[in-house]
């Protein structure tokens, strides 16, 4: 029984750290997941990788930050109201960016060769980054924390404390609520039905009276809205926005979308959470420098064994 006691002791000692990494991983994962939904929806409906999506998220973060600053000058200091204003304004204005990007850079290229929208998206991504650098300046913007504090989950003998921040609770709860609402939207409303119809067969859908242009536009609007929520969360969480922040997050979220099975909404969320957890645990137990290598390696491994991702529909070859 000695060893069991030893093991128990060991687990007891390691547990707080483990829990802390879990919390951080889930928080990060929620943010990645929200961005990943934008990738996966757009891919599902028009089969393109929207490289500018990471930059849409960056713009969402900037707009949330500006709303917060304006709240400060207007003297609005009640935190729930601040959050609500950030959410509503950032989502609305970022959605306009999502809409415009599709309208200007992708819609005219629909039905041409496969790589044309991809290049257009890369160009748009470069454009948006430099546009933000021009209008908002190149320096990183520090944001003071709005929600601080949290509850202590576990404490270790040597004083290490696993803490669950209030902000982390807000992020995870908001993500869960959005996911639930979103699933309802896709499965229950006519918009969702139109979207799924376009995914299956765009030409047939349009023959049956689905307004394809509008459906695709709304897909971009929704994707951008969710990216804005992610941007707002990151503004509150890290509080250090710069014009380049969309690139890394975008690649991470895209990886998440592919990991979960591109085209699948639950897959995007699952992929996001997995990438978040991999990052958190890898940084915690090994080295932070190689966390991205770990994430990509796991992606490759998953794709080798499940070529269409974790929740992606397996491709049945029609010959």
């Amino acid at each position: 029984m000695e060893w069991l006691f030893e093991l128990f002791h060991q687990v007891n000692y390691e547990l707080p750290k483990f829990v802390q990494f879990l919390i951080v991983g889930l928080t990060l994962g929620s943010i990645y997941g929200l961005i990943a939904i934008g990738y996966t929806m757009v891919y599902g409906i028009i089969g393109m990788i929207n490289f500018a999506h990471g930059d849409i998220y960056m713009i969402g973060a900037f707009q949330a930050m500006i709303v917060l600053l304006i709240c400060g000058t207007l003297g609005i200091s009640w935190v729930p109201l601040q959050l609500l204003l950030m959410l509503v304004v950032a989502v609305a204005l970022t959605a306009a960016y999502g809409w415009s990007v599709e309208r200007i850079a992708y819609r005219p290229l629909r039905g041409t060769q496969r790589l044309a929208p991809l290049i257009s998206a890369i160009g748009m991504s470069i454009f948006l980054q430099n546009y933000v650098q021009l209008v908002q300046g190149p320096r990183p913007k520090p944001v003071e924390p709005v929600i601080s504090g949290g509850v202590t989950v576990l404490t270790r003998a040597d004083g290490f404390v696993a803490q669950l921040g209030y902000l982390q609770i807000v992020i995870v709860l908001l993500t869960v609520a959005l996911m639930a609402g979103f699933t309802l939207l896709i499965t229950r409303t006519s918009l969702g039905r139109a979207q799924r119809a376009c995914e299956q067969d765009m030409k047939m859908a349009s023959l049956l009276g689905v307004n394809v242009d509008r459906t695709i536009s709304l897909t971009f609007v929704m994707g951008a809205g969710l990216a804005a929520v992610a941007g707002m969360m990151v503004t509150l969480y890290w509080g250090n926005n710069d014009f380049h922040m969309g690139f890394n997050a975008g690649i991470k979220a895209f990886t998440a979308a592919v990991l979960g099975g591109i085209g699948s909404l639950p897959g995007a969320m699952l992929g996001g959470v997995l990438i978040g957890l991999i990052e958190a645990f890898w940084s915690g137990y090994f080295t932070a420098e190689y966390k991205d290598v770990a994430a990509f390696s796991i992606l490759v491994l998953v794709l080798i064994f499940r070529p269409t991702g974790l929740l992606g529909r397996p491709e049945v070859e029609k010959v």
Binding site: G47, F254, V293, F296, E315
Partner: peptide, 28 residues
């Protein structure tokens, strides 16, 4: 060798990841 079975855009993300891995290794 391991990834060329993947179709189209799955290949794209894996090659992108490979590019990033090389860069991260070079940095670290």
């Amino acid at each position: 060798f391991p990834v060329l079975r993947l179709r189209g855009d799955y290949l794209a993300i894996v090659t992108l990841g490979f590019g990033e891995i090389i860069r991260i290794v070079l940095i670290n």
